[in-house]
Computed example of a mutant assay.
Amino acid sequence: MAKSTYQKLIERAALTALELHQVSSQKKALKAELSSMYDTFFAAHGRPEGRFDPDSDAFLPVMSFTEPQFQRVQAAKKAEYNAKRRHETAIRALAVHTKEVA
């Protein structure tokens, strides 16, 4: 019976690792798209002087233009955080089970 539980824990760890990889890749792609949108906007309208400052009125137009994509990136970050937590939990459960059997 212990082998069956161990197998399920291994499968859970593998599945959560796969999920983490998928959401991390998705977040990376969404961030690249956001960066491309910034570049597109600045190419068309010019870039304000100085560092990107979300509190500056000069950057409000680009922030309005990219807001939907920015929200997708924020959601992807949250999904990645949650997937990482699930994976770490699966790994801890596997470690605990391994110590109990040994």
Rank of each mutant, 00 (worst) to 15 (best):
E33G: 08
A29K: 15
Q26V: 09
G50P: 03
H45S: 01
D55L: 11
K28T: 02
P68D: 11
F70K: 11
P54R: 13
A43W: 02
R86S: 07
D39G: 07
G46P: 01
F65Y: 15
L20T: 04
L9V: 04
H87K: 06
K8P: 00
P68G: 11
R47L: 01
S56D: 05
S25P: 01
Y6L: 14
T5W: 10
S25I: 01
T98S: 11
Q71H: 13
E100K: 14
F70D: 10
S24V: 00
R85Y: 08
L15A: 11
A79P: 07
T89E: 14
R47V: 03
A75M: 06
L60G: 04
K84S: 03
K84W: 01
V101T: 14
E19I: 12
A76E: 03
P61R: 11
N82C: 11
R51D: 08
Q74S: 09
F42S: 02
D57P: 08
A102S: 15
I10L: 15
A32I: 02
S64C: 04
E11D: 13
L20A: 05
R72D: 04
A76K: 13
H21T: 14
K8L: 11
K28Y: 06
D57E: 09
G46D: 01
S64Q: 15
D53N: 15
A79S: 14
E88T: 13
A95V: 00
E80L: 08
T16Y: 05
S25D: 04
L20E: 03
S35E: 13
Q22P: 02
F41M: 01
